[in-house]
Every structure is written in C-alpha cells, then in structure tokens.
C-alpha cells in the first residue's frame, strides 16, 4: 500500500506542478470558459471574454498550487507517520483534503485587484451600495460549512474522549489524526469567513454595468470556492471519523461516504446566477 502511495503522490505532484507552470491548455481553457459563460448567461464582449479567460486561468493555476501544497503536506505526513496511510473509506478524506486545497487555491487566486478590462483610460463605473456575502453565495453554503464543522469537532471530541465503538481500524486514521482534521476544519471555516470579507472588499474595475455583472459572476465563483474548501475539510473529518465510529455494515458508514463525496459534487456545479438575480434585478430595465 505504501508503494502505491509513493507512486501516486509524485505523479499527482508532477501534474499539479505542470498545472502551475503551464496553466490549463488551450482546449481546457476553452472548455472552462464556455462552461462559465454559459452558466452566467450574459452577453459578452471581446474584453469580457479576455477578462474571464484570464481569471479562469488564474483560478486553474491557483487550484494546481493548492493541490500541490496538499500533496506535499500529505507526503510529509506519510514520511513522519507511515502508519497513517489511509485505507478504504478513509481514503475519501484524502480526496476531501485535496479538493479543499484546490478550492482554496482557486478562491485565493481571486484575492487581488484585476486591471480594468478596457484599460486605465476608459470611463469607469462603481456601485454605491455595498453587496454582502449573501448576494453572491446562497446561505446554504455557509450553513453547510458551519454545521459540517460543528459535526466534525463534536465527532473528534467524542472520539478523543475515548468513545471508539469499533476500535481503530487497521491503517485507518488515529484519533489524534481525526482531532487534527477537526482542528483544520475549524480553521477552515474561520479562514473562509476572513477570505470572504477580503474578497468582498477588493475593488471591481469596470467600464459599464455589463463588465460589473461579469465581475460579480467571477466573484461569486471565487467565494463559492472558498466555502467549498471549508465544507471539504469538515467532510474529510466526518468521513475519517465515521470510518472509526461505524462498522463496515452500518448505514452510518455509507452516510459518511456520501458526505465525503459531497465536496467533489459541489465543485462541479455550474457558476451561480445568484448575483445577477440579487444585484441586477432591474438591469434589463436600465440597459
């Protein structure tokens, strides 16, 4: 098993490193761009397409950087504690951590001010009312993150207190490992809150309403990434904890697996139209 991990990790690390150095290929960028623009469903000018393409490329590089960081951290854990090699169901928690790191990398890549699409000399628009997180991300994401974190911490505390119904699995996570994951998910939700505030405070350079609408779409995309990272960390803890708590035939274990897979499903959802519905309700009447 160890040999398999030491084969997988360098391959994954090399793939992520390539992703950082080269960015997504032309066809991949076209696919990502089409998926995003179809999801947002707004008229796009050449400047807007260039802007979205650049930001999606940055997001992809950020995801690769996050993935590489997770692989390196995982390799370090394996070096220091080879008995922590996750087996079976617990392997899903590894996937959760990698999804979390990639999503966090994608979200963090948006934490800088981007240049105005039509250059510094064009006319500019700015909104006078400050949008809130609620305008970009459905509260269900934040609730899912908070509930997942509370569940993860409770599970870790419960296990740490000595309640290990089935005993530690062979090759499964140690209770200390689960506690470390719970601490990570607690840190994850705090970081998601801080990063969301930072992201909402970053200027949105735009020359007209349309560009601002696109920027809102991209901002919602980045904010969702940040909350997916938090959800993925708590789900990794829950899946690791449930593998210790429930027996192989228990429905609880399958519920844990379902939660473990959830972040992967969430990360494939198409771009949200929520900012368009909440911030641009009357845009049609104005334009």
């Amino acid at each position: 098993m160890m040999a398999l991990w030491w084969t997988l990790l360098p391959v994954a690390g090399a793939a992520f490193l390539l992703g950082i150095l080269r960015g997504p290929g032309r066809r991949e960028r076209e696919r990502l761009l089409a998926a995003f623009t179809e999801g947002i469903d707004l008229p796009a000018t050449a400047e807007v397409v260039a802007l979205v393409d650049r930001r999606i490329r940055d997001r992809s590089v950020g995801q690769s950087a996050g993935g590489l960081a997770a692989v390196l951290a995982f390799a370090l854990v394996l070096l220091l504690s080879p008995e922590s090699v996750p087996l079976g169901v617990t392997g899903l928690s590894t996937m959760g951590i990698i999804v979390a790191a990639m999503a966090a990398g994608g979200g963090i890549s948006a934490l800088r001010q981007f240049p105005a699409p039509r250059g510094p000399d064009a006319s500019r628009v700015a909104r006078l009312d400050a949008p809130t997180l609620d305008d970009y991300v459905h509260p269900a994401w934040i609730w899912a993150s908070a509930i997942g974190t509370v569940a993860a911490v409770c599970l870790a505390v419960w296990l740490f207190a000595g309640a290990v119904p089935n005993g530690p699995l062979d090759g499964g996570p140690s209770v200390a490992g689960i506690a470390a994951l719970a601490a990570l998910s607690l840190g994850g939700v705090a970081c998601a809150g801080i990063l969301s505030r930072r992201l909402l405070g970053i200027p949105q350079p735009a020359s007209d309403e349309r560009e601002l609408q696109w920027d809102d779409g991209l901002r919602a995309y980045a904010l969702r990434d940040i909350w997916i990272a938090s959800i993925a960390l708590s789900s990794a803890t829950i899946v690791a904890g449930s593998s210790v708590t429930f027996s192989a035939t228990s429905p609880g274990l399958y519920f844990g697996i379902l939660i473990g897979v959830a972040p992967v499903v969430l990360s494939t959802l198409r771009a949200s139209r929520r900012p368009g519905r909440r911030l641009w309700r009357n845009a049609g009447a104005r334009s």
């Binding site: 000399d121 064009a122 006319s123 500019r124 628009v125 700015a126 909104r127 006078l128 009312d129 309403e209 601002l212």
Partner: peptide, 9 residues
C-alpha cells in the same frame, strides 16, 4: 446604484 467617471469630461 452606479456612479460613473468619464475621464474625458
């Protein structure tokens, strides 16, 4: 509610 700046104004 939007505010606009025209550099040529």
């Amino acid at each position: 509610m939007l505010l606009s700046i025209d550099p040529n104004s």
